[in-house]
């Protein structure tokens, strides 16, 4: 099995978001960076499939040079090699991102081996476009299953399961080579080991320069939504507050009195 996972570097925002003065970006001066939990599960799944069935794994990101950090994180948990589509800091829209990935996949398949499986997150953590994986699959003429939370690869088929709209689960089967977009809950990703980190640090990262283009949506600016509601009402401290809490429960009618 040859597997490629696509991940996107995003700021690890915490309690609240601060924007840069012109509202064009998140102020990341005091923030670390990460990838979406969906993509973390994608990385873990790729490593597990190849551990069980043999083959090799690659991780790809399109982003600034600093995104090498996320590629090394992925290699630290067992991904074999990494590809950086290095940008000059401009935002790539989903169409441009997908075409850059398609081009890189074609080049990688010519120089290495064809990928049996491409793994995406259902949506990127920051822009939440819900489309890059599907665009790549359609451009390559490969089947895609989206939003999956369980994955089995056997006999040249991907058997994927996802939560059904009304509850329960639904199953899809597609032949390899295929594309999947995955969600958190697919697995419980491992933590990197110290030797894993050291090994990842020494690895080469292949760098390519993708072409920028603009289709849209075109970002004009960002805004933090206004906080709604009144300030918090402190009902009390410690277990003595239980009575005030139950008064509240009765008042709002969640407790049959």
């Amino acid at each position: 099995m040859e597997i490629l996972v696509c991940v996107k570097r995003v700021p690890a925002t915490g309690g609240r978001i601060t924007l840069t003065p012109h509202g064009q970006e998140i102020d990341t001066r005091y923030l670390g960076f990460t990838i979406s939990p969906h993509e973390e599960c994608g990385v873990e799944e790729a490593v597990r499939i190849v551990e069980a069935q043999g083959g090799s794994t690659a991780v790809l990101t399109l982003g600034p040079i600093a995104a090498e950090e996320q590629l090394r994180d992925a290699m630290a948990v067992g991904i074999d090699r990494a590809i950086l589509l290095e940008t000059d800091g401009r935002e790539f829209d989903p169409v441009a991102t997908a075409s850059a990935i398609v081009e890189a996949v074609r080049a990688q398949e010519a120089s290495h081996a064809p990928f049996d499986l491409l793994i995406f997150g259902t949506e990127a953590a920051d822009t939440g476009g819900f489309q890059v994986g599907i665009r790549v699959a359609v451009a390559l003429g490969r089947p895609i299953v989206s939003g999956i939370k369980s994955l089995t690869v056997r006999d040249g088929m991907v058997v994927a399961r996802r939560e059904a709209p009304g509850g329960g689960w639904e199953t899809c089967e597609v032949p390899l080579p295929a594309v999947v977009s995955v969600k958190e809950g697919l697995n419980l990703p491992r933590y990197p080991s110290v030797p894993g980190r050291l090994r990842a640090k020494r690895k080469e990262i292949e760098r390519l320069t993708p072409a920028w283009s603009r289709t849209g949506p075109v970002k004009l600016g960002l805004r933090v939504p206004e906080a709604e509601g009144a300030p918090v009402e402190i009902l009390g401290r410690g277990p003595e507050a239980a009575s005030a809490v139950v008064d509240l429960l009765e008042r709002i009618g969640v407790l049959a009195s």
Partner: peptide, 23 residues
Amino acid sequence: MGVADYAVIGDLHQIVPAISAEI
């Protein structure tokens, strides 16, 4: 606290059972 309407300050391991007991 910035999004909650109500709050109890303290250790949940004491407060949650106390609420159940009061109910």
